[in-house]
Computed example of a mutant assay.
Amino acid sequence: MKSKIKIITAIILLIYVSILSIYKNDRKEQALYRYKIITDSTDLAPEDFLRVAEIWTKSSARIRTQITLIQENDSLVARAYIDRHNSWLKKDHNIDGALFTHELYHARLAQAIAKDLSKKIDFYGYDKKTSFSKLELYQKKLNYLQGKYDSESNHSRNKLMQAYWEYKIDSLYNLGQHYNISEEVSVFFPTPPKVQVWQFPDDTLYGKNSIVNKLEFTILKLNPIKMDSTYLINYFENIIFTENSKYNTIYLEPETSKSILFGYSKDTVNKIETHNNILVDSQLNFYLARYVFPYFEDQDSTLIKVGERFFDSIKFKSDSNPPKTP
């Protein structure tokens, strides 16, 4: 009888240990799948929204992002991650929609803040204790910015502010990255630019351009063959400022360093506003910098400020002062 009890007890213990082992392994797998580290090679996907939306909320989506420190190659680095079990997206929204894009930029904002913390840890050589102390501060900063992003963009409903925040988040992500236009000039773009070619019957202009949402930033090197002001104005008016010419305001700005001509136009049909700035470097090479954005009748100066930051970021090697930070 005692031997049977021992056998039964052993079997029960074996079953218990097996169940416990399966449970622990399942919990580990769930934990590994629950949190997704955001890197340059990963992006937001529908499977990152695993939680069922609460029935009592009016929100169609939510994404929970955090920052953590990970040991990589004997160094601590900050990484942003998504808590998939606390993120949801209602089924009537897809990856091509405005709401998904809004949530995508929540993830990119977290990654931008994490990259900034990693740079600080590396630059200042923080020890482990200091790094974790900074992590707490940066998490609070992230939470504040995520809330501000939601509030100002009204969860993507305010298209103007959504465009502004996409530019701002991309700028934070690529902060400090300037792209060379020539040996003399470099400029900050919120996203990596593409080669831009403007082809005219008797001229070809080359430069770079970047698009964020409906905001477009371009800089081109020009080829005027004469230096007198009358020729330059005619050249720029006829070649550069041809669209919607009756809306153009063009004037010389000799007092502004490097900038000699400025013009803007409003296309009230297609609702597009374009700002152009003509600059000259120390070698008397000319450049067109322009930004284009959606035009709204009740628009404030938000997107104009964005464009001015782009203009301010243009850096000449001959400058003694660094460009303004976007």
Rank of each mutant, 00 (worst) to 15 (best):
Y144H: 08
Y173P: 06
L99D: 02
F188I: 03
N143R: 04
K90S: 14
P192Q: 09
A163I: 02
S186K: 14
E184D: 14
L175N: 11
A114F: 02
K90G: 10
Q66C: 01
K115L: 14
I67V: 09
Y126I: 04
K134Y: 15
V187D: 04
P190Y: 07
Y124D: 11
G147C: 01
Q146T: 00
D122V: 11
K119P: 00
T130A: 12
D122I: 13
Y144K: 11
N158Q: 00
F132N: 12
D83W: 07
Q111N: 14
A98V: 13
E183I: 12
M161H: 08
L69G: 05
S131K: 05
T191I: 13
F132H: 12
Q71D: 15
E152T: 11
Q71E: 15
Q139G: 02
L135G: 07
I82H: 07
A114E: 07
W165H: 09
F188S: 09
K168N: 10
A110S: 11
L175G: 03
I82G: 05
D170L: 05
S75R: 14
S186T: 04
Y81C: 03
K120C: 08
Q111D: 08
D127Y: 03
G125R: 00
E136P: 01
N86K: 12
S171C: 02
L104Q: 13
L109R: 02
A110W: 05
Q71A: 13
I181Y: 04
P190G: 08
D116Q: 13
T101D: 02
Y138Q: 14
S131P: 07
T191C: 03
M161W: 13
L89P: 09
A78C: 05
R157D: 09
S133A: 12
A80F: 02
H178Y: 11
R79P: 00
L160A: 11
L117H: 06
L160S: 10
I82V: 15
N73H: 12
K129A: 12
K168E: 09
T130M: 14
H85Y: 15
Y144I: 01
V187Y: 01
N73P: 05
E166N: 03
D83P: 06
T191A: 11
A107V: 02
I82Y: 05
Y167S: 00
L69A: 01
K129H: 06
K115P: 05
E183N: 15
H178I: 00
E103V: 04
G176A: 10
Q146L: 02
H178P: 00
T68G: 07
S118A: 14
N158K: 01
W165L: 11
K168I: 03
K134S: 15
L142N: 04
E72G: 04
K141E: 15
S151Y: 11
I82M: 09
I113P: 01
L89D: 11
E72D: 14
Y173F: 13
Q177R: 15
I169G: 01
S153R: 09
L109I: 01
R157E: 11
S182L: 07
K141C: 03
K148V: 09
P193H: 07
I67F: 04
H155P: 00
L142W: 03
